[in-house]
Simulated scan of single mutants.
Amino acid sequence: MKKIDIACIIDDDPIFVFGAKKIMQYADFCTAFMIFHNGEEALNNLKSIIKAGERLPDIILLDLNMPIMDGWQFLDEFTKIKTERKITIYIITSSVDPTDVEKAKEYDNVNNYLVKPITLDTLQQLLHDGGNN
């Protein structure tokens, strides 16, 4: 299993973000973090990073229910952006709605739909999956 270089968390819940970062640090999951509190903030920053030719995250952990721009709106806009490297997106949400699970399958760049909370076992599985990309 290889370590992720940059993990991006897009979530408006500070408790989830804090917990996810702590678990990632404990698991030695990644070298660095990008944290955004809504889809619009993430989209604008990631566009700037792409334009500047800087390093993009290897994975994005995306919440669905956020203010300003939710996860679905982010996905719709982000999938229109051309990038040289594939970014693996995991939807990590509290929604157990079967229509959300089915909708997530419509996006080619969404690797999996995971229900909060995130656990050490979940992260280890993501590392294992990410090492195969």
Rank of each mutant, 00 (worst) to 15 (best):
L56I: 10
N38D: 14
I92Q: 01
A104M: 00
Q25N: 14
V115W: 02
A27I: 07
I10W: 10
I4Y: 13
M1E: 06
G39W: 10
M69R: 02
N111K: 15
D76H: 12
N111R: 14
A20C: 10
D58R: 04
D58Q: 12
E40L: 13
P67I: 06
G39M: 08
R85Y: 13
N44Q: 15
E41K: 05
R55W: 04
I6H: 14
L56M: 13
T83Y: 06
M1S: 13
M34P: 00
D28E: 12
I50Y: 09
D11A: 05
L46Y: 01
T83N: 13
D70C: 04
T79R: 13
R55A: 15
K3R: 14
L75R: 07
G130M: 08
I81Q: 11
G19N: 13
L56Y: 05
Y107E: 00
I118V: 12
N132C: 03
T119W: 01
E84Q: 07
L126A: 03
F29C: 06
F74L: 06
T83W: 12
V115Y: 03
R85K: 15
W72T: 10
Q25E: 15
I60F: 01
I23E: 09
G130H: 10
I118L: 15
Y90Q: 05
D63R: 02
A32K: 15
G71T: 02
F29Q: 04
V17P: 00
D121A: 13
I23H: 05
L75H: 07
M66K: 00
L62E: 04
K82T: 06
Y113Q: 00
K3I: 12
K103L: 04
Q73I: 08
H37D: 11
G53F: 10
L120M: 11
D108H: 12
Q125G: 08
K103M: 04
I87A: 08
E77F: 02
M69E: 02
E41D: 13
I35H: 09
E77S: 07
N44E: 15
N132G: 05
I81P: 04
D121P: 01
A20Q: 01
D100H: 08
E40R: 09
A52S: 12
N109T: 09
I118Y: 05
M66R: 02
F16V: 11
M34D: 09
S48R: 14
M1W: 04
A20F: 09
E54R: 10
S94A: 07
I87C: 09
H37E: 14
V115S: 02
V101K: 14
P57F: 10
I68Y: 03
T93K: 02
F29M: 08
K116T: 03
Y113S: 01
L46F: 06
Q73M: 12
F78N: 04
T93A: 01
